[in-house]
Design a binder for these strands. Structure first.
Length: 490
DNA sequence: AGCACA
């Protein structure tokens, strides 16, 4: 009796011209499904990203015999069916046709619906979401290409339902304005019965799509989160919204297009100062110059190390190091406030070296333009090309590199990014610390500080070929006097 | 790794 009732998992399904596929990579496209079925017949419809983990799919053939041919072939083949190198499992679907209900989630728009999974999802601040969206929108605008493994954590049964719904708006059509905060226009967060949610708005569908492709399935980098927050995974879909209504700047909602929007009473601190209190942190007056103090400096932090670390967020124009209160401090100048904000948010409280060494404390300086009298081991003006470096560069090479810099590619910098984008089977290495959703990866999220997540276009004219060879740009960490290179923050 | 459309 008991052995008879196993309706779902029979080995033999009744034949159907619709095939059910599982164990697919979540990046699988409908085109890949069509290619997979094409040798056996005419594929008339496909559906991918099916199921809670979006790793299932359907293929519908024109004729039942074609579906049978495919099942039969792989039943006896020594080579399993594969998509992107991953074995996929085939069976007849228990339905006779694919029903494609194109919902808003399938239609590209300027607004994304982002889900954050994780026990502490509701502790993710709006600033982190903003920063993450901004960084990735800028990193790979128009590049929707990543090969990351499907997020496999959080089954339906174990998920507590902490959802975050983000609305993102992208500004692909204003590609020349690559201000760090030009992409994300608005964010609203809210809680529903299911959990914490938010909406993030981009200015256009292109940038929203870039952000979606870049962020979907990723773990929020640890360096963006406060300590002791459990890993949070993003899932992103398109929203039907096109424009958010943000009434106040607050810890729940932001309108980045309107910095003069009144601040919600709940976000104003007692002194009446024009300072937001967000996520328990006071926002100081922002500046393009950061003041970094280094705590517990067990290892020498050199100018080059600082340059490398801070270059991860944009062009560093000038650095000045000095001693104060028995410790080392440094002023780091970026071309614009936005880049400094991103760098500060990402780096504050983190250590350059493992073991709590060289912990960074960052505040905004009142300086806006540092006066570097002399280039030495404690201060440098990177906007002045180093003559020696320039001489090492044949001028022809410099011209080539300028010519190959297409309009579409000048929003990021660094050869590691460029080459990575050209390789379809790029390993699941988070370029800026955004790990794939695979739990094993989340244990250690490398932050490739030698890279440049964001290179403001305003700085591009100052990028000379010689500067590309400057310390910190070449990606070679200082020699091993430390347990781990500074290209990984802790 | 086991059947979609919130």
């Amino acid at each position: 009796m008991a052995s008879v009732s196993q309706p779902q998992f029979r080995y033999t399904q009744p034949p159907s011209k619709v095939l059910h596929l599982r164990n697919l990579p979540w990046e699988c496209t409908e085109e890949e499904l069509t290619e997979l079925g094409k040798p056996f017949g005419r594929v008339v419809n496909t559906k991918c990203n099916v199921g809670a983990n979006r790793n299932q799919a359907f293929i519908e053939f024109a004729d039942l015999n074609q579906a049978i041919a495919m099942i039969s072939y792989y039943a006896s083949s020594s080579e399993p069916a594969q998509v992107r190198g991953k074995t996929v499992y085939l069976q007849y679907s228990n339905r006779q046709e694919i029903i494609n209900n194109k919902t808003t989630a399938d239609v590209a728009g300027n607004v994304l619906l982002v889900t954050i999974d994780g026990q502490d999802a509701r502790l993710v601040s709006i600033d982190v979401l903003h920063l993450g969206c901004v960084v990735f929108a800028l990193l790979f605008p128009g590049k929707g290409f990543f090969c990351f493994d499907m997020n496999v954590n959080g089954s339906a049964g174990s998920c507590q339902g902490n959802y975050l719904q983000l609305q993102l708006s992208a500004s692909g059509e204003r590609a020349h304005v690559f201000s760090a905060f030009g992409f994300v226009h608005k964010i609203t967060t809210f809680e529903k019965t299911a959990g914490f949610q938010a909406l993030v708005q981009f200015s256009g569908a292109e940038t929203a799509t870039s952000a979606k492709n870049a962020l979907d399935g990723r773990i929020i980098p640890r360096y963006l989160l406060s300590e002791n927050i459990a890993p949070c995974t993003l899932r992103i879909m398109y929203s039907a919204h096109t424009d958010l209504s943000v009434k106040f700047q607050s810890h729940r909602s932001r309108d980045y297009t309107n910095p003069y929007l009144s601040v919600a009473p709940s976000a104003i601190d007692g002194s009446g100062q024009f300072s937001l209190v967000l996520d328990g942190k006071k926002l100081e007056p922002e500046s393009n110059v950061l003041l970094a103090s280094i705590e517990n400096m067990q290892y020498a932090v050199t100018l080059d190390v600082l340059h490398m670390v801070f270059s991860a967020f944009g062009l560093v124009q000038k650095i000045a190091m000095f001693d104060k209160n028995g410790g080392v401090q440094a002023l780091i100048q970026y071309p614009d406030v936005q880049t400094a904000v991103v760098a500060k948010e990402a780096l504050e409280g983190h250590c350059i070296y493992d073991g709590g060494f060289c912990k960074l404390h960052i505040s905004y300086s009142r300086h806006t333009d540092l006066s570097i009298k002399v280039n030495n081991d404690r201060s440098r003006d990177y906007t002045i090309p180093n003559p020696a470096m320039v001489n090492q560069q044949p001028s022809i090479l410099g011209q080539q590199s300028v010519q190959t810099m297409s309009p579409a590619s000048h929003e990021y910098n660094g050869t590691q990014y460029a080459s990575g984008l050209e390789q379809p089977m790029m390993p699941p290495q988070p370029s800026a610390g955004w790990a794939s959703g695979v739990p094993a990866v989340s244990q250690s999220i490398p932050v490739q500080m030698t890279n440049h997540p964001y290179m403001p276009p305003t700085s591009m004219p100052q990028m000379t070929p010689g500067m590309m060879q400057m310390p910190g740009h070449g990606g070679v960490p200082p020699s091993g006097t430390v347990p781990h290179g500074p290209n990984q923050l802790y």
